[in-house]
Design a protein around this nucleic acid. Structure first.
Ligand SMILES: [Mn+2]
Ligand SMILES: [Mn+2]
Ligand SMILES: [Zn+2]
Ligand SMILES: [Zn+2]
Lengths: 153, 153
DNA sequence: AATGAAAATGAAAATCAATATCATTTTACC
DNA sequence: GGTAAAATGATATTGATTTTCATTTTCATT
């Protein structure tokens, strides 16, 4: 049932450190999250979780996601004009996102030179850099072919 | 009273093109916006506007901001975990933002090399690039001096 | 100036994701 | 098993923004 991976251990260590309890519901939600495609919204995760936990509530999903984020298992992606999505973070490399403005497709991108330049730009202004958020918006190859106005996901 | 600048002309042309009416209230709001420091929230603009238009409503401020954005006079800045801010856009060059995570200070930055790389990165993935959003988060020089809890020089 | 249709306005209600509250159920430990 | 703390689910609340709707303004036409 459970994926015997170390994500679960990360969560358990996090909980133990602050004297929190484990719970079947939360671990089930984590398992659903880990197995799912990336970049789920809270609602999508809720819908998936409900298949295994028919009586689970929205609040618990939100609470769980917050904990997963706090312990480094996931990360919120806040794109413009849409609900927050969450992606797997643990053992995933940093990347930015390329977003199709037609179909919503998300592509993960990374460019070390870009990263360095961002760092450098911040330092040039005397900032001690912590992180950045870069989203590139455009029309994906598929949507360019189809050409027409909006398609669906 | 009014700043006889061309921003007002831009608005008027926009309105004329779609057979909309001019209105004293909206032009007053625009004037307040143009005179104000940049990066106002809708609420801040509302508070300022109320000094000249004591009975103005939130809805009108929001409606006006939307129109100002549509006609290229302003641009929404959506930072994380705070209400949208609006900055002057007309005759202002593109730039990204450096944000202090301690005091919230916003610094406008621009690096042509960075811009090019972003464009190139998108194209590399077959996207027809439209725009991007880059925010750099860190600790500003002032806040570094004051040295709060976690500052490592 | 007066008229009238369309646009703009302000007050209030609605929306919507996210959070807080609270009574009930689990968990961890004796 | 008994207990206290933590977790849960239903529900209410929040906060920014949007919508609704009755009233007021604008503006082209008399
Ligand atoms: Mn991603
Ligand atoms: Mn700016
Ligand atoms: Zn697409
Ligand atoms: Zn600062």
């Amino acid at each position: 049932m459970k994926t015997g991976n170390t994500e679960t251990e990360v969560l358990q260590k996090f909980l133990a450190d602050r004297r929190l309890n484990r719970s079947r519901v939360r671990e089930e939600i984590l398992d659903v999250f880990l197995r799912a495609e990336r970049h789920l919204t809270a609602d999508q995760l809720y819908q998936l979780a409900r298949r295994r936990l028919p009586s689970v509530g929205y609040a618990t999903v939100y609470r769980s996601l917050k904990i997963f984020c706090d312990c480094g298992l996931c990360r919120p992606i806040k794109l413009e004009n849409e609900p927050v999505r969450y992606e797997h973070l643990y053992r995933h490399d940093h990347h930015d996102h390329l977003v199709c403005t037609r179909c919503g497709r998300l592509v993960e991108v990374f460019d070390p030179t870009l990263e360095q330049l961002q760092e450098k730009l911040g330092r040039k202004h005397g900032f001690q850099m912590e992180r950045h958020r870069l989203e590139l918006y455009g029309i994906c190859p598929e949507c360019r072919k189809k050409g027409g106005p909006d398609d669906r996901n």
